[in-house]
Each structure stands twice: as C-alpha cells, then as structure tokens.
Design a protein around this nucleic acid. Structure first.
Lengths: 218, 218
DNA sequence: GTAATAGTGTCTGTGAGACACTATGGT
DNA sequence: ACCATAGTGTCTCACAGACACTATTAC
C-alpha cells in the first residue's frame, strides 16, 4: 500500500519589506531541480518528527535558522504530475516573520523575492505561493494576522500600513484606530518610541488572542 | 525515506436533517477498530487516483454510493499518535449533500448522527469532525456554502432556515432577502412550488458562483 | 370569509468613511 | 517659530435589524 509515495513538507516563509509581501526562496542542494530557487522543504521523518507541523518547524530551522515564527498549515498538494519522482504529497505551511528579525535570526543565504512576481519555480511551487498569498490577504481582512509581520512592539501607524499593503487599499486613520480600539486585541507596550518627531504609543498583540476578530454574518 | 507512513483520505460527509447538522458514519470492515463506527476513509492508490481529491471521491463512491457532492479539502492530520499502525497521514475532506439526495442516491447502510454529540470515534475522528463543523459554520457566515445542503432548487425560506441552523441564530426575513438580492448568487428556477399555502419562488445557485461572497475588511 | 405562508415597505440606530482638527515631539 | 507625525472630534451616508404591512394560495 502507498508504495513509493514521496511525502514532503514545504514552507512559504513570508515577510513584509519595501511595502511588499516577499517570499523566502532557497537554492536547492539536491536533484530534482538542483541549484534552482525553490521553497524551503524536505522529507518528513516518520520517526523523529512528532507531526507534520514539527517537520515544518525543523525544516525551517535547518534551512533558514529561523525558530518559532507564526506557522499555519496551508494546504496539501498531491498527485502524480507535481514531482518528477512520481506520485507525491506535499503538506504545505506558511510562516510570517518580521523582516528585521528574519535578517538577524536567519543564518542561511536565502533570496527574498516579491510574492506577486516570482520567476517560474520548480514543482508546483508557484501555485503554493499563490495559495499562501491568497490566504494571508484573505485572513488580513478579519483577523490580527498582520501583527505577525511586525516586530513584537509596533505603533498603530505601522500596523495600519501593514494592513494597507495586505488588503491592497488605503485605510482611514480614524476609522482604523476606532476599530482596533473596540476589538481590543492590542496591549499598550508601556514605552513610547524615540525616533524623529512626536513619539508614538507602542503596542503588542495580547497574548492568546484568537486570530479571528470578526464573524460578520450574512 | 518515509518508510511505513500510512497515507489515507477520510471524508466528513454532512447533511442537514431535523434542523441539525448530521454526519455520515460507517461500520469499519477491517482492523484496526473493526466494526466500530468511523468516518468513510481509505488508502490513497498512488497509481490509480490522480490526486487526493480524486481518492476522496472514489472512497465516497465506494463506501456510500454517492457521486459528486460538494467536496473540499479540510485539513491534513498527521503524527505517530493517531493510528495504532504507526506514523500516519490523513488528508481529510468534507462533503455536503442534501439529505433527500443522500437517502436516495446512497446505497450503503450508513449511520447518520448529529455532528455536535457524537460517541467516541476511533483514531482522531472526533477532532476531524469538529474541524469540519467549525469550517462549515464559519464559511456559512460569508459564503453561499449552505446552498449545498439543500436540493438543487429551493425557496428563500428554506435557505434562510439553513443559514439559521448553521449560524446558530435567527435571521430577519426582510434583511435576509435584501442581502440575498444584492449578492445576486441565486437564479430564479422558473417554476414555483405547489405544496400547501401560497406557492414560493424557487431558486438555484448561479453556476460558477464564487463561494466567498463578502470580503469585510477591518 | 380564515389560515398559513410568501413577500414588501419603512423607520431607526449603529457604524464606517471622510476629513478637519488638535497635540507633541525635534530642529 | 516651523515641520512632521501622533492622535481626536464630528458629520454624513449607508445599511442592517426590527417590525408591520400587503399578497396569494388552499380550504
């Protein structure tokens, strides 16, 4: 049964840089598609990994040095057409990190490319990235997900800009703050920031916030 | 690599009956958990199934006789703890059918049990059902998904009742019709229905409707 | 006529967008 | 003083909930 099914995990690691959603790609070390840019991925170790999420974490740590960013199962891609080695399964995850954290914590030499205009990638990795981008954009509309693209502490202006990039339209400052206030998912992070002009209040995500903030019924 | 990983698909087939979301369960023919009630499921045939969705369709057809209901990938459950045979993967799907269609099209002898109060099921099937119920309820808030629980042609009163059951609260008739009207995802099905009192307009889902109807931004 | 369900009209409060305003820091 | 960014107040329009109303069938 299931003879020769290749089972892997692949991770779409995304960050926000230059007001754009960008994806981490690595040069593949092995065939198939050796030396081509592709998503970080690897085989599941049926013995060592307690589940596929753990495998995704391990792959991310091994290949990029990054530990415990936001990680969520995306979709499972399957079939005989997606991998030259034969019928395969890829359980995919997406991860979000702040770009500063990525550059400091991460050891490896990865490429960061804008998610919307990628070159042709091996396997069905273009489709996987498209799925991830759709998921992140959709969830940004009704959740606190964008917070995970920021540093731990951030200003409301930064948060608003993040939402704007993900949603693809400008938001009104007053309405945005009203909404954030009433949803009450941010905790004042005590300190204010010293940078250039008037300092701003810093916030962080309330620990244990349900991701979903709206329910919005028909 | 991946030696001995068991790969299956499992399907949560749901319908609406007696104003409740109900789940189709079958008596298992084989060990493990022979003769216990469980979700319809089976091995993926790496050769024959073109992908996991096709495997889910095949399993559904083989085990219940049902063909081409609404089918959507739910989540992939993995790990060493969920199946006594060892480290396993279950790519799960959920399916929706009208209960009349289910009873007529389906050949097998299945059990139909209310999704909210199931007995203890083998493997992690209780968790899988919980996932499916959550997904259906959540999607009902912003999509046309509930239509798939009705027969092809249905009245607005039936549709409203379906939404009410899934969302768990009553809706205002006038508001509901206004919303349906403006979202324009229903096509008058020409005929009106003859039953008891005043006949009602029948509708069907517009072919090729995007499931997502609202976007609702922060 | 009545009963029963289908379908519509209208009022009102809430809340989002728009936008002007004030506040507080650096220089 | 001025500039830049942070943060607030207010108006208006759209829209969802509430609810009463009319319409059309069977009997």
């Amino acid at each position: 049964m299931n003879q020769g099914i290749v089972v892997t995990v692949d991770v779409v690691l995304m960050t926000l840089k230059d007001r754009r959603l960008q994806v981490v790609l690595l040069e593949r070390e092995r065939d198939p598609f050796k030396k081509r840019l592709a998503l970080p991925g690897g085989y599941i170790h049926g013995g060592a990994d307690i589940d596929a999420m753990a495998a995704a974490e391990r792959v991310l740590a091994e290949k990029t040095g990054l530990v415990s960013p936001y990680l969520e199962q995306l979709y499972t891609f399957t079939g005989g057409a997606r991998d030259p080695r034969g019928w395969s399964i890829s359980i995919t995850y997406f991860a979000l990190v702040n770009s500063a954290l990525l550059e400091e914590q991460s050891s490896a030499n990865f490429k960061l490319l804008p998610a919307e205009k990628l070159p042709r990638l091996p396997f069905d990795h273009n489709q996987i990235v498209a799925f991830a981008v759709d998921r992140v954009r959709a969830k940004s509309g009704y959740s606190a997900l964008p917070c995970y693209l920021l540093p731990q502490d951030f200003t409301l202006a930064e948060l608003q800009e993040t939402y704007e990039v993900l949603l693809g339209n400008r938001l009104d400052k007053s309405s945005f703050r009203r909404k954030v206030e009433e949803l009450a998912f941010l905790l004042p992070a005590g300190v204010t920031q010293q940078r250039s002009k008037r300092p701003a209040q810093l916030y962080r995500l309330v620990a244990g916030t349900e991701l979903r903030l709206f329910d919005r019924a028909i």
